[in-house]
Write a protein that binds this DNA or RNA. Structure first.
Length: 579
RNA sequence: GCGCUCGUAGCUCAACGGAUAGAGCAUUUGACUUCGGAUCAAAGGGUUGGGGGUUCAAGUCCCUCCGAGCGCGCCA
């Protein structure tokens, strides 16, 4: 419980109960950050309403009933009935010591560890990754890191598209090219030309179409030779995905791949169990379920198609199989889907059916972490000059190049090896941070200049703040390790602002997790970095007037650097020591 | 037609139902023989798309209209 606000909250709740009795039930006792004081208590207005009394009188009574002497130096009724709180310097210093001594920087562990399955990235086999995969991959990875950090048991699952009718034509194209040649083409990452080649033949040749169709039948029938060829496609693609993931610095491994094909064995079971539950209905020749509350354009019940009229399964079946697998085999109680916003209705329907049939029972829940599109400067879907989707590897290469140019310009003294590393951290960090720092549900405009800027809410600004602190320690003649044990003394206003900010890390992380919204952590880190910059400007560290002050400030520097580094790491971003 | 999401400063974005809606960019103005100026400080800039309602309190919740995007039966 690092955040001072959390300390106060418990006592406030008790005071509300004492003052309001039954009337206090249900009244929000939250203590919030405030721009008029260190924190404010708002609930007196609501309590006053419930009690039929004047808000300021109630606030006065609450103030009398709560003992905050060891935490606050001032607590006063303000405005229509708020209570403004100012924390003791000594209290802040004590809390800083606690936080600095903790490897987790005061971030609380989850009260109950959950078994979480997080589904993200999900590229398609034999297709190149493009900007469309960026958000799922980056957001999902950040959330996975945070959930693990607070102690949940997290399983990452990469639900790659490795099954379905396109594989008939892809396999036949593979046969035409010859395995060696095809594997070559795929392994160098030129998946698009492979896919286009197959597509073109399929569109142009009826004979090829026939081959493709019969190949699909063989694939679904488990034909050994066909499966062998299919595995070549999957293996080469997986290798390619890993090169992107390694470049991007995300946690996904080949062992996290759980493609659609992994659920094939469960598909008949999905049908059987829905049938046993009397939920399956035949409609227009297809076997479907009608979850309540969903209608189509004619206002008729909207079906979730479990089995097509041709006997095949589709993605709803496979998604339901996923739920069974995750809940019954993995024993997960939180299923997170980092999937684009357009799939909201589909996932709602899957969740509705899974709940109705009893696979998804409280406290087990399914959460759709939806996100918007990446747009170009024209506010349309980001496209390359040729009009195609922008390839992810090209995008990442450009990011690093642009960062390298900036680093070369700003800091020519860096060795070329260091420069390369810094360019990678800054370039990739910029792309990821730009994606993570805005509300995920909205579209955002991809803008190189802005994301690589050293001013504003960007990765380079945060990384720079971190690098400056590292620079201080290189000159300080003090071991970094020792700094966390120095005792902090809060006297200057900028020190105070920084201290308060540092203590809010815990809340920031939890707020981010509760809403599955990484931009909240970004906003916190940006505020921390600005608080630090302000402190840095006004409070000399190495040139401090006396040893105690110097040590105190070194302590603040160290804690700031660790918080920035940890926070960026939770976002999947590296913080270089110099740049 | 029905449904979902979005609409906040010139631009890009914030704001658990809490007081005077905040940042950055851009613009204007200050601060450097710098503990890394890739910085800091300050100013101007708003009818939160329009209109109703709920509430002690609404950018936030409800209704309605306008505008944008996306879904709406056998692709995933």
């Amino acid at each position: 419980m690092a955040d001072p606000v959390a300390h106060v909250e418990k006592r406030v709740a008790a005071a509300f109960a004492e003052v309001g009795g039954d009337k206090a039930i249900g009244v929000d006792t939250a203590v919030r950050q405030s721009d008029r004081a260190d924190a404010q208590i708002d609930g007196c207005l609501a309590l006053a309403k419930a009690m039929g009394l004047a808000p300021r009188d109630v606030a006065t009574r609450v103030l009398a009933a709560v003992d905050l002497h060891d935490i606050c130096s001032a607590a006063e009724v303000a405005g229509p009935g708020f209570i403004n709180l100012t924390f003791h310097h000594e209290f802040l210093a004590r809390e800083l010591v606690t936080v600095a001594a903790s490897a987790r920087l005061g971030v609380r562990k989850a009260k109950h560890a959950r078994k979480v399955v997080i589904d993200y990235s999900a590229p398609n086999v034999a297709k190149e990754m493009h900007v469309g995969h960026l958000r799922s991959t980056v957001i999902g990875d950040a959330l996975a890191r945070m959930l693990m950090f607070v102690g949940h048991d997290v399983t990452r699952e990469n639900h790659v598209g490795d099954w379905g009718t396109p594989f008939g034509m892809l396999i036949e194209h593979l046969v035409d090219l010859g395995e060696t040649q095809a594997a070559n083409e795929l392994s160098v990452g030129d998946l698009d030309s492979f896919y286009r080649g197959a597509r073109k033949k399929f569109d142009d040749s009826e004979a090829f179409q026939a081959r493709a169709r019969s190949r699909v039948v063989k694939l679904q029938g488990g034909d050994g030779e066909t499966l062998r060829l299919w595995r070549i496609l999957v293996a080469e693609s997986t290798t390619y995905f890993q090169t992107i993931y390694r470049t991007l610095g995300v946690l996904l491994e080949t062992t996290d791949v759980m493609g659609e094909s992994a659920y094939n064995d469960l598909l008949p079971q999905v049908v059987q169990r829905l049938s046993d539950a009397k939920m399956l209905v035949v409609s227009d020749g297809a076997e479907v379920v009608f979850p309540s509350g969903f209608t189509n354009r004619e206002n008729q019940p909207l079906p979730l198609i479990i089995r097509k009229s041709d006997g095949g399964y589709n993605y709803a079946t496979s998604d339901l199989a996923c739920v069974i697998d995750r809940v019954e085999r993995l024993r997960a109680d939180l299923l997170i889907y980092v999937v684009g916003a357009p799939q909201a209705q589909h996932l709602e329907m899957v969740a509705a059916v899974a709940a109705q049939v009893g696979w998804l029972k409280s406290p087990c829940e399914m959460v759709h972490v939806a996100f918007g599109n990446v747009l170009g400067a024209d506010k349309k879907m980001l496209k390359s000059r040729s009009g195609d989707a922008v390839k992810l590897d090209a995008l990442l290469i450009e990011a690093v190049e642009r960062a390298a140019n900036a680093v070369t310009e700003k800091n020519p003294e860096l060795s070329s090896q260091t420069k390369d590393e810094v360019a990678r951290f800054v370039g990739l960090g910029s792309v990821k941070y730009a994606d993570l720092s805005t509300d995920r549900v909205k579209d955002y405009i991809f803008d190189w200049e802005r994301m690589l800027s050293f001013d504003g809410n960007t990765a380079p600004y945060l990384q720079y703040a971190h690098a400056r602190i590292c620079s201080i320690f290189r000159r300080a003649n003090v071991e970094r390790e020792a700094a966390k044990d120095f005792s902090p003394k809060i006297s200057h206003a900028a020190e105070r602002a920084l201290a308060l900010r540092l203590l809010q890390f815990d809340s920031a992380v939890w707020d981010t997790i509760d809403k599955y919204s990484p931009h909240r952590l970004c906003a916190y880190l940006y505020e921390l970095a600005t608080s630090f910059s302000s402190f840095y400007e006004r409070c000399p560290v190495l040139k401090a007037t006396d040893q105690d002050e110097r040590n105190s400030r070194l302590m603040l520097c160290d804690l700031t650097a660790r918080t920035l580094q940890t926070g960026l790491d939770l976002l999947g971003i590296d913080a270089p020591e110099q740049m």
